[in-house]
Each structure stands twice: as C-alpha cells, then as structure tokens.
Nucleic acid binder design. Structure first.
Length: 355
DNA sequence: AAACGCCGCAACCGCCGAGGT
DNA sequence: AACCTCGGCGGTTGCGGCGTT
C-alpha cells in the first residue's frame, strides 16, 4: 500500500511521448519484441504507449455502430472488464473502449433512461420527450405505454404517468380521428406502405406479433445480469417501439405539415436519422442501423437504446462520429427533428397539460 | 480577437495477482 | 513465509482542441 509510483524511481521521464520516443520504442520492440519494458521511461509507461497507441494492429478512428452495440452488449454481461471487452473487439484497446464508454455511451444510455451500470431501464432517467414523440407517432404503443407505466409504479414519474394515461384516453376517445390524422401525415403514410417490406420483417418477426413473447436470448448473455434485471421493462419498451415504427421515420428537409412542439418535446426523437437518407430515405439503409438486424445479437433484441437512439450521421467507421441527439442539439439536428415530427396533433390534445 | 467553458483522449495512478528469490 | 518485481487492470486526471460568448 502506498507504494511510490514507479516513474518516481530513477528520475524516469513522464508526460506526453515525443515522436522520437515513439520511434525508439517501436524500433526496440521490433528488434526485441514486447516485454522488458524498461527503457528511458518506466516499464508501465512503455507498455501502455505500445499497447494503446503504437501497436500496428490498432484500429484508429471512430467506433462503428456495430462496435458500439457490441460494447454495450458486452458491458451488460461483463461490466467494467475493459480488457475482456477489448479482447472481443479486434484492433480496439481497453483504454480506448473505456474512454469511449465514459465519454459517449454512458451519457447516451443515461439520456435514454438506462442505468449504465446495471443496464436496467429507469423511468426516472428517461427523457419524457422520448416517450411522447414515440407515443404520438405510434398510436399502438399508447396502451403499451400505459401498461408499462402502470406496472412500474415504483419508478413512476408523475409526468410520465399523466402522459401515458392522457394519451391512452385520447386514443380511445378519438381513435378514428387520431389514426386518420396520422395516416394523412406524409411520414406515417410511408409507414403504412413500408409495413409490407419483407426485409425488415424477416429478421424481426418477434416484434411483429406483439402478443408473442420475445424469445429468450440464445447466447451466453442469457445468463448475464442484464437480462435478469431488465427484461420486464425492456419488453415493455420494445413493444412500443416496433421496427416498423423505427423504419418509418427518416430525415426530410421539408417543413410541410410540421407542427412545432415544445422545444423539450422534440429534443430526443426515437428514430435513426441517417444523413444519407435525408432526401431519399430507403428502408435498407435504415434497416442497417435499426438494431433489429442482427438475429444473434441478444442485446439488440432487447435494447431500448438500440431502438430509441437517433443516429444523425453515416456510421463510417473511420470518419463518421456516432452522433446522437441530445438536448443541446445543433441546428442541423433540430432540422432533422422537425422533419421527424411531421404530424399533426389533434386539437383535443393539450401539450401544455403534460408539461 | 480574447476569454471562457466544455469535451475527448492520452497518460498516469493505485491496486492486485503471479512469479521469482 | 516474506518480500520484491513486474505486468495487468480499472479509475482518474490534465492537457489540448474546439465551440461559444
């Protein structure tokens, strides 16, 4: 206990590495191989520099969407075992994954109402706007939402409860009008057209029939803490976020039919928004990132995060940042949100009443 | 243009276990 | 058995870049 840092011994150099030092270390390792990390810096520093930066097989650049999903899935099983997670992500280091988790994924999970430690869905963390926007665009989810909220009173947020109950009653009282409004909407019309597209349904049959229980995970994740802790809530959420709904919405620049909502309500729409589809959205592109594609990816099948995260840029593994919507969004983001929420709200629906 | 604050990442720190003496 | 060294790991920090005011 309390041992002095190794770098304090012998006056070894600390701090950022210079290109010359990098060259030296690389040349040394190419000659001698890794190990015996005692050069002009402490062994630890040399080893870290090599494993985290100089190693030739390190993959540089942004994490791809698939990598992100893998990290989340593995984290739900392994916890903060970064080295174990890194071992399953070729070219990525534990340090890189750890940093990415702390700076990106963790925040995103929190925004989406998921505890990043337990991966449990927490309504008290969930952004109310997520629920509202999804519920409004998917009337079939209203009752599910109500059920979800009713079944989780321990976590109940009064705003969410009011939201769900009011939306449910709204749907029941004015279901014809409500559905008509949605169907007349351009985007929701495209939803109805796209529902018959087989490529989506082929790999997400478990979501098609909402009466059917989602099959148990067949991977090793089935025994992990994630499923045990989160399945009930996740199921409820997934029911509300059918892949059809997700695939329907896309970025369009047109502002027609857009009814501005309260700023807070549009801060976090729940649909992937690929920049490549801004003018001509296509189902395959959305499908690619929908999170429902991978049949053997257990986490994706259950992850609310997979469903409600909003991707704004193309997931080019090298250049594209994995940008997700948050409350401090840019103008571009807002433009995207605006088009995402191109529907009309029935007059009887009082937004202010929710807020 | 300058000041300020935020964010991301590289590097460091402290602890632990394995292996050697 | 006790001690030491080393490699490995997760947590934390500090600096530089960038955006905002």
């Amino acid at each position: 206990m309390g041992r002095a840092p190794c770098c304090d011994k012998n006056g070894l150099k600390k701090g950022p590495w210079t290109p010359e030092e990098d060259q030296k270390l690389t040349a040394y390792i190419q000659l001698q191989g890794p190990g015996n990390w005692r050069l002009q810096r402490c062994g630890k520093s040399c080893r870290l520099r090599w494993t985290n930066y100089l190693r030739p097989d390190i993959k540089r650049g942004r994490f791809s969407f698939e990598e992100e999903e893998t990290i989340i899935q593995l984290h739900s099983i392994l916890g903060n075992k970064w080295s174990a997670i890194a071992a399953r992500l070729p070219g990525r280091t534990d340090n890189e994954i750890k940093n990415y988790w702390n700076t990106h994924i963790r925040k995103r999970l929190l925004r989406n109402g998921i505890d990043p430690v337990t991966h449990a869905s927490r309504l008290d963390l969930l952004d109310l706007s997520s629920i509202l926007s999804s519920a409004l665009c998917n009337p079939s989810s209203l009752l599910t939402l109500s059920t979800l909220v009713g079944n989780t009173q321990a976590l109940l947020n009064p705003d969410i409860f009011r939201l769900s109950t009011t939306l449910s009653s709204l749907k029941q009282e004015n279901s014809d009008l409500f559905l008509q409004q949605l169907q007349e909407n351009q985007l929701c019309s495209s939803l109805l057209q796209n529902q018959a597209i087989p490529t989506l349904s082929s790999q997400s049959n478990q979501f098609q029939n909402q009466e059917e229980p989602i099959p148990a995970c067949t991977t090793t994740a089935s025994t992990g803490p994630f499923l045990n802790q989160t399945t009930p809530l996740m199921l409820a959420n997934v029911e509300g976020f059918s892949p059809n709904t997700t695939s329907t919405f896309s970025c369009q620049n047109s502002q027609e039919n857009f009814v501005p909502l309260n700023e807070g309500l549009v801060s976090q729409p729940n649909f992937y928004c690929n920049s490549t589809t801004t003018t001509n959205p296509t189902v395959p592109e959305l499908e690619e990132y929908s999170g429902f594609q991978s049949a053997n990816n257990c986490y994706q099948n259950f992850s609310i995060d997979s469903v409600i995260s909003t991707r704004l840029t193309s997931p080019d593994p090298l250049n594209s940042p994995s940008t997700y919507v948050n409350s401090s969004s840019t103008e571009d983001d807002r433009e995207c949100y605006s088009s995402l929420l191109k529907f009309e709200i029935p007059e009887s629906f009082d937004i202010d009443d929710f807020l």
